[in-house]
Design a protein around this nucleic acid. Structure first.
Length: 448
RNA sequence: GCGGCCAUAGCUCAGCUGGUUAGAGCACAAGAUUGUGAUUCUUGGGGUCGCGGGUUCGAAUCCCGUUGGCCGCCCCA
């Protein structure tokens, strides 16, 4: 059709699309609620500075930002984290700890759309504030698993990869990298699985910035990134690390490994062992993460990340709030939807009334309307034809609508002060006294 | 921001190397059928062939541009 189209990367939700979206939201919401998270929402439009403060100036090219009529620099929200940090920061003093919040909301990013990525998309965001220990990570990762397992997906379909930026910092410090260089190295690590030959291609961005790097160091970084698996060995990691470490730093690393083990064991105790594995290759793009980071991927590996999250202990303070530790994750609807389609976990679209009223004429319509309204007011979904139609036509429509029952209002029934009730599945019929129709229908429907 | 492929009805597509008034299936609607439905038959609505320009006697078809979609690169909070 010529004329107006939706904007690139934005979607119309026709009823079938909308019902699928609702299925996703339903699973997410019931998971978050079961885990004791409280739902909130926030403005779609925020001051541009909120995102610049968190992510730096460069972010602006990927924001839906503009100047409003009052001259304010504003942006559609590209994510929830800064907003929720502000909200929690404002009231942190009066909120019971731990603070466990979630939202399901739409976000907007000015990027080129491609598979699994659009300009407008929905995310569930779940965050825990006020808990510095790894117990918060256990809780969140368990919730993330439920947000996917709730669709019937299993450990054969997706995997959570857990990593720790602190371990990376300690290790890279030990290798002699400066605080300025470490983020660049982590960018390199992020590229390892994409860039093919890691020692050559992947280090390019680092080398361009800080000059050449000896091959031994490159190999060590790569070896550390390869630490992975569900049965990771602290011993191996410590050994690898210790060969480069100053003795006084060993305690830090041991404590970190203990926390790592605690998360893995906690999830194993919940029966979720097979959903999680260590993977030091995961570092996550942005620099504000301060500890454990994790991502969810499909097992086949042909989709982009399903979800991502981690600890950001400094962000609430950075945005003007109190010093408040935090962990959170977000899971998106686009990639999740692709995964559900791949695994045929989408619910079939259902749009059937419970009752269809077959109406024989104008006199019958008056009686039918009274019952229809009474049934609807009591919550029963009832449909009826707007115009007078042949009975045959009406029965066909009733059948095709998927209704369980038909109520037949004709001259014969009117004369006898009854309504004929037909079971559309087995085609049985019986007369029901007119004043009992609502009660009988409700009773029949509740039995199934 | 860069590159590849694509664009005909609501959906899936056909339409030959340019040639009358652009087709099919599905879907939707009406009728056969004013007291009983899943089949069937008949009929109908719906297209400026994504948009703009060019070549030509003539363009859905060839050329250029543009918009949108899909896929990849950059990025990915």
């Amino acid at each position: 059709m010529a004329g107006f189209q939706s904007l690139p990367g934005f979607r119309d939700y026709h009823p079938e699309d909308f019902s699928r979206r609702q299925q996703v939201f339903r699973v997410w919401r019931s998971a978050a609620t079961a885990f004791g998270f409280q739902e909130y929402d926030a403005p779609v439009l925020e001051p541009l500075d909120l995102y610049k403060a968190k992510s730096g100036e460069e972010i602006e090219t990927q924001l839906f930002s503009f100047t409003d009529k009052g001259g304010r620099e504003v942006s559609l929200r590209p994510e929830m984290t800064p907003t929720v940090c502000r909200m929690v920061g404002e009231k942190a003093g009066s909120l019971k700890r731990p603070i466990k919040w979630f939202s399901i909301a739409e976000f907007y990013r000015y990027e080129r759309a491609q598979k699994g990525r659009l300009r407008a998309f929905h995310q569930l965001n779940a965050d825990i504030f006020g808990e510095a220990g790894p117990e918060a990570e256990i809780e969140l990762i368990a919730l993330l698993i439920q947000c996917l397992a709730g669709f019937g997906l299993t450990q054969d379909d997706f995997i959570i990869r857990l990593s720790d930026r602190n371990l990376w910092f300690y290790y890279l410090e030990a290798l002699g990298f400066t605080a300025a260089q470490i983020p660049a190295v982590l960018t390199v690590v992020d590229r390892f699985d994409k860039a093919g030959a890691p020692q050559v291609e992947a280090f390019k961005p680092y080398v361009e910035k800080f000059g050449p790097l000896d091959q031994t160091t490159k190999n060590r970084v790569h070896a550390f990134a390869l630490q992975s698996g569900s049965n990771f060995s602290e011993q191996e990691i410590l050994t690898l690390w210790l060969q480069d470490a100053k003795p006084e730093a060993r305690e830090k690393v041991s404590a970190r490994m203990a926390d790592f083990r605690k998360i893995m064991d906690g999830l194993a105790d919940m029966g979720l062992k097979d959903f999680v594995e260590m993977d030091m290759m995961v570092v996550r793009g942005l620099a504000y993460y301060t500890g454990f980071v994790f991502e969810a991927f499909d097992r086949k590996g042909d989709l982009r990340a399903l979800a991502g999250g981690g600890r950001y202990n400094d962000l609430v303070k950075k945005l003007g709030g109190p010093d408040l530790p935090a962990v959170g994750f977000a899971i998106g609807d686009v990639t999740t939807g692709l995964l559900l389609e791949q695994h045929k976990k989408t619910e079939p679209y259902a749009n059937a009334p419970a009752v269809y009223a077959v109406i024989g004429g104008e006199a019958a319509r008056k009686t039918a309307f009274a019952d229809i309204q009474a049934l609807r007011a009591s919550g029963v979904r009832v449909e009826y034809p707007f115009k007078d139609l042949a009975f045959g036509k009406q029965f066909k429509t009733a059948s095709e609508s998927g209704a369980k029952l038909a109520l037949i209002y004709g001259d014969d029934e009117l004369a006898k002060r009854v309504v004929k009730l037909r079971d559309l599945a087995d085609r049985s019929e019986r007369d029901v006294p007119h004043d009992q129709v609502v009660a009988v229908v409700r009773d029949l429907l509740s039995r199934r």
